[in-house]
Design a binder for these strands. Structure first.
Lengths: 204, 204
DNA sequence: GTCTATATCATGATAGAC
DNA sequence: GTCTATCATGATATAGAC
């Protein structure tokens, strides 16, 4: 949907709720602010979503899917491991740069909720995906193409290198004294840098 | 202070407030819950801290210092770069394992506040520290001891590799299907793994 | 479907007795 | 210093007119 099209009320609500929940989290978000940003009033907001909790669930579910859908496709494919890693970095980098508040939001809300909530959203999805990746790593190691490494640690390394600098954006800007433009450039450089860093670390 | 000593009311408040703010963040925290965990009532809590905001500032300031004090000492010393990196990983790993909610808390609250708030807490401190590190990296690169790398990117890499898996603990436990004990073991392995990974990536 | 007005409830904060 | 009781505010949620 492009900006100039007329949004339905439902769409206006979703868009506004995404903004506010992603920025402020569940507890920081205000139904009032969501209604305002959607250009409607609180009564109408509650007409569409009976409660803040319902609206949140809807927003969170979409966010969670954005975070895991791409990784899943990549890790399950049968491309060579180096291209998998590069694709993983590129896809995640695209996603977090386009939705800078998404990772923090998902991470925080997963943390706020009990373990069974986390399992419900992640477990089934992720087991197969990961074991495929693990096997791919192992065979490359066996062939002497990669330095031996625990596949779990490697996967965590890659994701850390991409997501953390987005979650920590405010610190980063202070830490290396960046303006907004410099930060964007830094992250764009980072795309290549992370790929090279991981590649270099895996040299046998 | 050990557990069996009698805590002053002030100490009980600080300890309880740390727990609650670190777990729930500013907006999720309740003065009621802080009073309960401290074993006092809300009236007394407000006698010590006139407002939630004041109490928060006090807790946040300590948390922020925990996050930057160690890194600063290490990066400013004149040890060889490889030992600096190892020390940095060890120190940060110790800290985040002992205070698993600390990084998320600091990161979130920095994000919730305006840029000048961030600058106030970080800027002056960090400039000198970083330029020292940058020079150390550069001379090692010049000597051919390290593969050329942007010092900013390297520093962000190291911090990402240590902190992210703590911030993302719930995801991690699902992603690689870990129990609490397995997670702790994973993180303990990680201490060596990160050092080796960074070291390997920097081989010329 | 959309709005205004209102009910309900929880929270931060204060007042005052002891 | 510590407690109980209460206030004031602001947020979610509902009722009802249009």
């Amino acid at each position: 949907m492009t900006d100039k099209e007329v949004k339905s009320t439902e769409e206006k609500i979703i868009d506004a709720a995404e903004e506010v929940f992603h920025e402020k989290g569940y507890f920081g978000a205000r139904m009032r602010e969501i209604a305002d940003r959607a250009g409607i009033n609180k009564g109408l907001l509650h007409y569409y979503y009976k409660s803040k909790a319902k609206l949140f669930e809807s927003i969170f579910s979409v966010a969670k899917n954005k975070m895991i859908s791409r990784i899943q496709v990549i890790l399950e494919g049968d491309a060579p491991i180096q291209s998998k890693i590069d694709a993983l970095v590129d896809q995640y980098m695209d996603m977090v740069l386009k939705n800078p508040n998404l990772p923090r939001f998902v991470l925080n809300e997963l943390n706020n909720n009990a373990d069974d909530f986390v399992s419900k959203h992640f477990d089934e999805v992720v087991k197969l995906t990961f074991s495929n990746f693990q096997q791919a790593i192992q065979s490359e190691v066996d062939l002497g193409h990669l330095k031996p490494i625990d596949a779990r640690q490697l996967l965590v390394n890659i994701i850390s290198l991409v997501i953390f600098p987005v979650v920590a954006k405010p610190v980063l800007k202070s830490l290396v004294a960046l303006s907004e433009e410099e930060y964007q450039a830094f992250m764009e450089e980072r795309r290549q840098q992370v790929k090279a860093f991981v590649h270099d670390a895996l040299r046998p």
